[in-house]
Design a protein around this nucleic acid. Structure first.
Ligand code: FES
Ligand code: FES
Lengths: 143, 143
DNA sequence: TCCGAAATATGATTTTTATCATATTATTTT
DNA sequence: AAAATAATATGATAAAAATCATATTTCGGA
């Protein structure tokens, strides 16, 4: 459904949302084990997320990655969009160019509605909100 | 959402469902243009689908690919399963090992239900049923 | 001001997916 | 039986995704 990069990015962002803020940062070496993401690959992903203002960072000693209040207000979908692009989840299921009621593929009317609900959820829910369950211990990001 | 292979396979199978039966077959060269799939790649996909009894075939002159009544009773999901495997759509959205209510990732309870509806639809609907809209001209498989 | 810590930029390698090409086998027609 | 046709098997190449590695920049502390 999501690419590995997408899954990794979401896990990392949610973990950061749970554990960090402007005065509590985490470094790559603190993140790759709990999120189960290859260290060097995670580093690259975090750089990309940082560049797109999904997460925040400061260099040097006492530096690291963290999520500001504003970062936590990004939608879950925004993370996916930055990493996987918007076509992966939103384009026609069968890959035809025009995806609309006037020119539907055979699946359009059947998968369209439930997919819209799914995407609607991801677009409405913020990273901050979603991380609350994690804090409560009601959900997990590793096996 | 689906791999290119998955999209290609579904388009080809639906096209065959619309146009063929035991006495009306189509060859690769008749299929690659309407489905918009690279010819040699389509050939390989059809072989794979044939091996998995998703489609039927006969060699030699007057041969080609076609769908029997039984073939048309396969679910849409079955095609996806054969090509993309079942993990792509069914595994945990974040990729954690156990995906269940006892060990949920943060997204489990939010995307689970709508995803289940989506997959349920794909599993219930047969290729034959879905191809009817195509025959009516109510849906399309190419731009 | 200098040293070390950490992100950043960049690029190389590996693996997977997608694509292309060809030789072989089976079947129909002549 | 031979010839032509179409799927099948197999493998080669190309492109994309995932992974690994390293040099550079920025910042805090001694
Ligand atoms: S046309 Fe295929 S999903 Fe909309
Ligand atoms: S645990 Fe992630 S979707 Fe079920």
């Amino acid at each position: 459904m999501l690419s590995n990069s997408g899954k990794y990015a979401l896990k990392a962002v949610l973990y950061l949302a749970d554990k960090t803020d402007s005065s509590n940062k985490l470094m790559v070496k603190d993140l790759y084990q709990p999120t189960q993401v290859p260290k060097a690959y995670l580093a690259k992903l975090l750089q990309n997320l940082s560049k797109h203002n999904i997460i925040s960072s400061t260099k040097g000693p006492k530096g690291g990655y963290y999520l500001t209040k504003e970062n936590k207000e990004n939608s879950v979908y925004r993370v996916i969009e930055v990493i996987d692009g918007n076509q992966r989840m939103e384009a026609c299921v069968l890959g035809i160019e025009e995806c609309n009621a006037q020119h539907p593929c055979p699946l359009h009317e059947y998968v369209g509605p439930s997919r819209a609900v799914l995407l609607g959820t991801l677009k409405k829910m913020t990273i901050g909100e979603l991380s609350l369950d994690l804090k409560k211990g009601a959900s997990f990001i590793s096996s």
